[in-house]
Amino acid sequence: VPVSGGGGASKSSLTPEEIKLKAQELRERARKKKEEEEKRMEREREKERIRIGKELLEAKRIEEENERKRILALRKAEKEEEKRAREKIRQKLEEDKAERRRRLGLPPEDPATTKSSAPVVEEKKSMLPIRPATKVEQMRECLRSLKQNHKDDDAKVKRAFQTLLTYIGNVAKNPNEEKFRKIRLSNQTFQDRVGALKGGLEFLELCGFEKIEGGEFLFLPREKVDMAVLNSAGSELTSAINNPFFGVL
């Protein structure tokens, strides 16, 4: 008896054309997904750029505001310095005038009318609270003292101010460079320009420098570099160099 062979059901398979279409579809999906991801990343990058831009603008605004305040304070100090200098000149003229009257045998002028309000002013001043001097005021007084101690040698004073400005500027521009933050006190150039002048070392110490190694060096530690202090020091030195009335009193 012949046995009939049972043929199994043939498995469905894709034709080459269908495989090609399927591959194209997968590639298209991958391309769209990649484009969407790139767009999303671009949006994130744009948000980050906007955020950084805002932070930079705010930082710039704060820096400009601080610079404006420094300039205003510097101008105010210069005006006060000029006012004091003019007052000293006025007093000198009054003294010369009184001396001329004395030599001519004329009676001195009656100062009662011009000084009648002086006691009231002094009384008001005495009632004002005494506040400690700020570091900027200490710097200014230090430079004024240096100039007055060497008032007969303007060139030496100006050279000292310019040398100090160079030291401070180098540190401000290169705070990580130790060579700009370390000064050998025995260096002859330093001694001639700054060290030998009363007030030079004191000014650098106000900027943060301190003596180390038994007083052989002046050193400003990196962690003690204060840009605000250095900027103030630079402003005071620039004013002292350019203001003809500085240190007249």
Results as ranks from 00 to 15, higher is better:
A160C: 15
D152Q: 06
P129K: 11
R159Y: 03
Q148R: 15
L164V: 07
H150C: 08
S145V: 01
L165Q: 06
I130F: 13
K151Q: 11
K147V: 10
F161P: 00
N149H: 14
A133T: 10
E141R: 14
A155W: 00
Q148L: 12
A160T: 13
L143C: 07
Q138A: 07
Y167H: 06
T163E: 01
M127L: 14
K151H: 11
D154C: 05
R140L: 15
V157A: 05
A133D: 10
L146D: 00
C142G: 06
N149D: 12
E137I: 10
H150A: 10
R144V: 06
K125R: 13
Q162D: 08
K125P: 00
C142A: 08
I130G: 09
A160N: 10
Q138M: 13
R131D: 08
Q148H: 06
M139Q: 01
L146R: 01
K151T: 08
A160P: 02
P132Q: 11
S126I: 05
T134I: 09
L143Q: 01
S145D: 14
E137Q: 15
S145F: 12
Q148K: 14
C142F: 04
K156P: 02
M139V: 05
V136W: 02
K158E: 07
H150D: 06
P129V: 10
S126R: 14
D152E: 09
F161S: 00
L165A: 08
R131V: 15
L146N: 01
R140D: 15
R159S: 08
S126D: 06
P129E: 10
Q138D: 05
V157W: 04
S145R: 15
K156V: 05
V136F: 03
R159G: 02
L146M: 15
Y167N: 00
S126M: 11
Q138N: 11
Q138E: 11
M139H: 02
A133P: 00
K151R: 10
A160K: 00
D154R: 08
A160M: 05
D152C: 03
L165I: 02
M127R: 12
N149Y: 13
K156W: 01
V136Q: 06
D154T: 09
L165W: 02
